[in-house]
Amino acid sequence: MSKVIVLTGAGGVLCSTLAMALAKEGHKIAVLDLRKEAADKVAEAINAEGGTAIGVAANVLEKESLDLAKEVVNNQLGTCDILVNGAGGNHPLGTTSNPFFQMEDLKNNSEGFKTFFDLDAKGIEFTFNLNFLGTLIPTQVFATDMVGREGCSIINISSMNAFTPLTKIPAYSGAKAAVSNFTQWLAVHFSKVGIRVNAIAPGFFLTDQNRSLLTNPDGSLTQRGQQIIDQTPMGRYGKPEDLISSTLYLCDDASAFVTGIVIPIDGGFAAYSGV
Rank of each mutant, 00 (worst) to 15 (best):
E25D: 14
C80D: 04
T207P: 15
S246K: 03
R149S: 12
E64H: 02
V73F: 01
L93Q: 07
R149H: 15
G260Q: 10
G274A: 06
T8A: 07
N131W: 01
I244M: 07
F182P: 00
G268T: 11
N59L: 02
G12I: 14
D242R: 08
E104H: 07
T164K: 15
D253N: 13
D40W: 03
I157T: 14
G268V: 11
D33H: 04
F204R: 02
I265Q: 11
Q223Y: 07
A23S: 15
G94K: 03
L250Y: 04
N90D: 06
L136W: 03
E49T: 10
T139R: 00
L77F: 02
D208H: 15
T247F: 07
A270W: 13
L213M: 14
F100A: 10
A271D: 12
Y172R: 06
I195N: 03
S159M: 09
V193A: 09
T232D: 04
Q223D: 15
L248G: 05
N90V: 01
N74M: 00
I157Y: 11
K192H: 08
F132N: 03
V141L: 05
V4N: 12
P138R: 05
P138G: 03
I200G: 14
A201W: 12
E111T: 05
F204I: 03
E44Y: 05
S173K: 05
L32T: 02
H91D: 07
I155F: 11
S173Q: 10
M160R: 04
A21R: 10
D118I: 12
A187G: 02
G268N: 12
R224L: 06
A177Q: 04
G238C: 09
D218Y: 12
D208E: 15
T127F: 03
E125T: 11
G268I: 10
T52A: 04
P170W: 02
K176L: 10
N75H: 06
G151F: 08
